[in-house]
Amino acid sequence: MIWLTWRQHRKQALFGLAGLAVLAAVLIPTGNRMRDVFASSGARGCLDALGGAQLVAFRAAQECNSTVERFADGYETWAYGGVLLMFLPLLAGMFWGAPVVAREVEQGTHRLVWTQDVSRTRWFLVKVGLVGGGVLLLATGYALLTNWWLWPLTRTLVVPMDYLIFDQLGVVPVAYTLFAVALGAFAGVVTRKVLPAMGATFVAFLAVRGVVEFLVRPNVMAPKEYRVATTTSEPMLPNPAKRDWVIDTAVHNADGSVKEPNGTAFCLRPPPGADASPPPGAAQGGRGGGCTAEGGYNLWTYQPSGRFTTFQLIEAGIFLVLAVALVAGTVHLVRRRLS
């Protein structure tokens, strides 16, 4: 069975390895270059200097932010291009998962292979186990590469827990890939044809990913809040080095009502010897100035970056459980439904 699986899937395995090699050939040089620039632009140094405090002085944050922007300007397209890597698990599901059973049924070879001594349960489990194992290795390689490559960007341009970025980091890409392959195999047993199975895999994968991403993930743990009074002599901003996932930023009146959604504002009480005007960019979105009545505050709603691992494990767990359930469902259908 192992021989047969290898004989049937060796082209896919070589294709996968070649794809991974191409990916490495692109990511390793560009990643090295990005790390060099990250250090030489001073972005890395200023972020390290900000330390781990929740809030940092407005001026220090702004200075570091402008250094970071100089670095990030050159890499913005890279960060968004990197989003394409998110589709690799889907490709694995469509091209490796969907044909596992569907191609056999389409060619009629299931009638050949299921009438040998080996039972069809064993046949399927060895096949899906080996394909899954190969996919696990490739996905791990791919995840290691993207994690390494994205590191300077996740410290500057994007936040690790943000939508679409989280999905490329940590262990979730591996879980998505295993899920996609199990989904493809299941779709193949249901549709019995390769192309419809690929289509169904595409649709179902995006649907499940979307539901988990936008409906489940934000509700795993309640977000936390920062409050900073608008009227202050020492404005503070969330520490950009901490990489918290800021979900919402708004200026509130003292009674809690929203004065400015999507904004940050400060009303500087001129301290002795300080610059009276707010530094450039301080009142983003805070049209009309940040001067609320006494007691107004900026409110940042955020997921702390420290939750990254917890969120990763929960999401990877969800997709692994789904993958196991799909494999179990496929075994059931292979045993009962097909002939």
């Binding site: 069975m1 047969l4 004989r7 060619q107 009629g108 070879t109 009638r111 050949l112 080996v118």
Partner: peptide, 23 residues
């Protein structure tokens, strides 16, 4: 089976190996 399905891209020798491994 009907239409004598065989794995395309397998040779008869490889099909013999399949038979050996699966029986």
């Amino acid at each position: 089976a009907q239409d004598t399905p065989l794995y395309p891209d397998f040779s008869a020798t490889e099909l013999a190996t399949l038979g050996t491994k699966l029986n």
